[in-house]
Simulated scan of single mutants.
Amino acid sequence: MVDRIHLETEVIYKKTFLEKSIDEIEFSMIEQGISVKDKSKKHMTFDEIINEIFREIEYVLLPERAKTAEAFVKIAIEISETYELDVKIVKHHSHISVNYYFNSTGCMGFLRKVIMFADDIEFFTNTKGYDIVMSIDHYTHAVIRNGKRIKP
Rank of each mutant, 00 (worst) to 15 (best):
S94E: 10
I96H: 04
N99I: 08
G106C: 07
E70I: 11
V87E: 07
Y59C: 02
L61V: 11
V73Y: 06
E78Q: 14
A66D: 09
K67Q: 10
I49N: 00
F54N: 08
E52K: 12
E52H: 07
K88V: 14
F72K: 02
K88D: 15
R112L: 15
S97E: 10
V60N: 04
S80K: 04
E64N: 13
K67F: 09
H93W: 10
R112D: 15
I49E: 00
K67L: 14
A69T: 12
F110A: 09
T68P: 01
E48T: 07
E48I: 07
L111W: 00
L111A: 09
I89S: 06
Y101C: 03
Y83I: 07
D86F: 11
A71G: 07
V87D: 05
V87I: 15
Y101R: 07
E64Q: 12
G106M: 09
G106T: 11
H92S: 13
F54E: 05
H93G: 03
I49W: 01
H93T: 08
I50H: 00
E48F: 00
H93N: 12
V114K: 00
F110Q: 06
V73W: 03
L85Q: 02
Y83H: 12
Y59K: 01
H95P: 02
F110E: 13
V87W: 05
E64Y: 06
I89E: 02
